[in-house]
Design a binder for these strands. Structure first.
Length: 822
RNA sequence: AGGCCCGUAGCUCAGUUGGUUAGAGCGCUACGUUGACAUCGUAGAGGUCAGCGGUUCAAGUCCGCUCGGGCCUACCA
């Protein structure tokens, strides 16, 4: 048999990949009678060029499960998507081409986005393919393609029809850098060292009323001062007007129970809108509005001499002016947690403008119930969902003042400003370029319409991935029935509050169901110090060179080491361990292949099995069961661990040593014994390869093709059947016998080591001493012991002096010759 | 401030529903091999399972508290 001495992954992996592609083994078959296992996998942002080994880790982990399910006989529906719309892409294009939306036309900007999108998609696909991710590329979607636009627009129209989407003007979270409204989920908090300034307001009696603020630039936006209603110090001031420092107007002193009398001086400045508290009081008490910031974050004319300044500059100058006027009473540093836009880290402000909202606040209970209905792997990740839903404060703002995204299918009546919604049959539509649909007219009678210019939040589209996959927007009932709700959503934990939550929302409203039956949450790949990988920290490990050096299988091996949902540090040593496993598998198979003969040993029941054969078959069954149980719990790492332990310890260290003699000197054994060795070793090794196949798809495929595949058998190990075991295959008696055999063999090897001879050194005889209760057991393994220890004779008698791991059983050993001394 | 996760050998981590003497890989030391093995085998050193208290015949595992780390959420105007 032509079996290369070494496995060369650089050559093998691309070749095997081509074979998979030609045979189409990962293709979804809509006509298959098999049960469907459908996967909703994250469409990565293609524009960011930020892939590191952590991404390789989480995609691999999900894929272990997919491969397992495929081998269990499921008709797998596994599409990849590319998320190429929305702010991340825009931000990337702005940075790469040094443009922003004020300097370039909408059309040119979108063209750049599309261009980057295509480049990014290619990079991503190359990596997923190299890693051996078994997606069906014919099912690929992108979040800006026609199907996704139609799906997102239809979703919008149906939600609007049902009163779940509405257009309202209110203070909304706003990013000045991106010049757009954003949603609560787009905000993250950062620690920002800042300064708390004590500023004096002037009461009518000339008294200084000192308030503490981190936002002195919002003094011109001040609309009231607040005190606690029972704070005696200020009782006489309530209802009075006080002078705003530096700015020539007055505000009223009011009361609110939220004010903490212990904080600062117990006086609180309320502005047009520095934070959520300001919004609440503004709404509750009908306060005036003094918005001082324009949409780009500059002070407007209400700021008087400071008009035109950006926030930070205005703050600095106003502080100086206060100081100069003797109105700065003090200050101290403060570690402030500031809400920032997650995409650009710009502090979030409030802006009052009309936006589209999807109502979620009224449905918290229903959404929590959906979360409880979903099966979570691991279970503890559900808490993140519950916490997020319970903490929601805003309806979902879905409109963005941006260019590159799915347009709203909306026009406005020029006469009355009411929105006019495009009919379903026109979708997808882009009001910015498409003509107004024929016959469109407003309920007020107006016929002149202007297009909506905003685009949708990117999550409006990606929250529909299960419905995009199911071709919901095309009323494809066959596809819908086959794959929806999907079997599994796979993703990492940081987007539970966004992607997972929003997808649950959409499916709840559109199909009154969950989008999937279960969700599998992966952890993060961290650097060797346990830090998050990032370009700025310089701890970014790109997957491609690691794959090149150690193979994709070895990278996957590393990824499989993280238990479900937990983070894993990246160490090259772990990948090297994976490479070592590949070498060991290669060599073990090479050895076995050399002794299988041709066409022999096909029948697992052939021959006369020895105790060793029965033992390894029982261990195999136990291992397959453990791995299968683990996979059913999505604990891929436990499945690998069980398989690896069996392979190294039971199979290589012991069983192969036990059968060597039957392979080397078959003439000394009954033919049935030799046949049993061949059939058993073939059976066990094939099943071992199958148990490893989800983790090491390339190497196991190569070995399957080299040694095991026969005409009429599956074209690939990855579409072969997962190992099964018969009732009673795990045989306690066979295990006990094997255990005894291993103990005796170990004792014999230890003795040989002590006598400075190698493990295969021939023995003239082994005399086993055992009590009556163990004699029969020893006799049952004597032949295997003789072969494994390379002894000419094994007999039972008294008087052994060599201890074994079995109480009461001792050995006496005699070398067949004097060891050569050197 | 609240929630979740974590703290086990020098390093990276397993330890299922509580059950002998706490494990693996790597690393380290010694010896021996290399007739599947850019290897392998055998043996060894190395652990107050973060700490304290509780439940129990029995706790790394369950409960409470403390300390330390990470993440999430909410806040100090």
């Amino acid at each position: 048999m032509d079996f290369p001495k070494r496995y060369k992954h650089q050559e093998a992996e691309p070749r095997i990949r081509r074979m998979w592609e030609e045979e189409g083994i990962y293709r979804y078959d809509p006509d298959s009678p098999l049960p469907c296992y459908s996967v909703d996998t994250p469409p990565p942002y293609v524009s960011s060029a930020h892939l590191h080994v952590g991404h390789a880790m989480s995609y691999s982990q999900a894929e272990f499960i997919v491969r397992y399910k495929r081998m269990r006989g499921y008709n797998v529906f596994y599409p990849m998507g590319f998320d190429d719309n929305g702010l991340p892409t825009e931000r990337y294009v702005e940075r790469k081409y040094k443009v922003d939306k004020s300097k370039i036309s909408r059309r040119e900007f979108i063209d750049l986005c599309l261009k980057e999108t295509r480049i990014g998609a290619r990079t991503y696909r190359d990596l997923w393919e190299a890693l051996g991710i078994s997606v069906d590329w014919s099912l690929t979607y992108s979040t800006i393609d026609e199907r996704s636009r139609r799906t997102a627009q239809r979703s919008f129209l149906e939600l609007a029809r049902d009163g779940l989407v509405e257009r309202r003007g209110e203070p909304i979270l706003w990013c000045h850098r991106c010049a757009t409204a954003i949603a609560q989920a787009d905000v993250e908090t950062l620690d920002v060292p800042t300064r708390l300034h004590d500023v004096a307001f002037l009461a009518g009696d000339g008294r200084h009323l000192v308030i503490s603020t981190t936002r002195p630039e919002l003094i011109p936006a001040c609309v009231a001062l607040y005190v606690h209603p029972e704070d005696g110090r200020y009782a006489s001031l309530v209802g009075q007007q006080v002078e705003v420092p530096l700015f020539d107007y007055k505000v009223e002193v009011r009361t609110h129970r939220d004010v903490d009398p212990e904080f600062g001086t117990g006086l609180m400045m309320v502005c047009t809108w520095g934070d959520m508290d300001d919004v609440v009081k503004w709404r509750e008490h009908g306060l005036d509005s003094r918005p001082v910031l324009d949409p780009r974050g500059r002070m407007n004319e209400l700021a008087g001499p400071y008009a035109g300044l950006p926030i930070k500059k205005a703050r600095q100058q106003i502080v100086e002016a206060l100081d100069g006027a003797g109105l700065l009473a003090g200050g101290r540093p403060l570690d402030h947690k500031v809400g920032v836009h997650d995409r650009c880290k710009t502090p979030v402000e409030f802006n009052h403008s009309p936006q589209w909202f999807l109502r979620v606040l009224d449905f918290k209970d229903e959404l929590l119930a959906r979360g409880a209905e979903l099966v979570w792997f691991p279970e503890f990740m559900k808490a993140r969902y519950d916490d997020w839903v319970q903490g929601l404060k805003w309806d979902w703002c879905i409109s963005r003042q941006r260019y590159y995204g799915v347009p709203f299918p909306v026009w406005y009546c020029v006469a009355c400003d009411q929105p006019w919604l495009a009919p379903l049959e026109t979708l997808p539509v882009d009001p910015a370029v498409d003509p107004v649909p024929e016959g469109a007219s407003c309920a007020c009678g107006g016929t002149e319409l202007r297009p909506e210019e905003d685009v949708m939040d990117t999550w409006m589209t990606s929250s529909l991935t299960p419905l995009i996959n199911a071709r919901w927007a095309y009323d494809d009932e066959e596809r819908m029935g086959a794959i929806y709700p999907q079997s599994i959503r796979v993703q990492a934990y940081e987007i539970i509050r966004t992607w997972l939550f929003y997808t649950v929302v959409k499916s709840h409203f559109h199909t009154r169901s969950l989008p999937w039956e279960a969700v599998m949450i992966s952890g993060w790949g961290l650097d060797s110090e346990g830090r998050k990988m990032s370009k700025s920290l310089g701890n970014f490990v790109e997957p491609a060179p690691v794959i090149e050096r150690y193979s994709a299988d070895a990278v996957r091996y590393w990824a499989a080491g993280a238990t479900l949902g937990s983070d894993r540090r990246f160490n090259e040593q772990d990948v090297a361990d994976g490479k070592r496993l590949l070498t060991k598998l290669w060599n073990a198979t090479r050895f076995v292949a050399g002794h299988l003969g041709h066409g022999e040993g096909e029948d697992p029941a052939a021959g006369e099995p020895t105790a060793a054969d029965r033992w390894i078959l029982s261990r195999l069954a136990a291992t397959a069961r453990a791995a299968t149980d683990a996979f059913e719990r999505y604990e891929y790492s436990h499945a690998l661990q069980a398989t690896e332990r069996f392979f190294f310890s039971d199979f290589c260290d012991n069983y192969l040593e036990m059968v060597k003699e039957r392979f080397w000197k078959p003439e000394r054994f009954a033919p049935g014994r030799v046949a049993a060795a061949r059939s058993t070793v073939r059976r066990v090794l094939l099943d071992v390869l199958k148990l490893f196949a989800p983790f090491l798809p390339y190497l196991t495929e190569e070995l399957y093709q080299l040694v095991f595949r026969r005409p009429g058998e599956p074209v690939s190990i990855h579409v072969s059947r997962w190992p099964e075991w018969a009732e009673g295959a795990v045989d306690p008696e066979a295990e006990a016998a094997g255990q005894l055999l291993v103990e005796l063999l170990t004792a014999a090897r230890r003795w040989k080591t002590a006598h400075k001879v190698h493990a295969n050194f021939p023995l003239e005889r082994i005399v086993v001493s055992a009590g009556n209760d163990r004699r029969a057991a020893v006799e049952a393994v004597a032949d295997d012991l003789k072969a494994a220890a390379h002894a000419a004779e094994v007999s039972l008698a008294g008087g052994g002096e060599v201890e074994t791991g079995v109480p009461g059983v001792t050995l006496a050993l005699t070398l067949a010759a004097e060891p050569a001394t050197r």
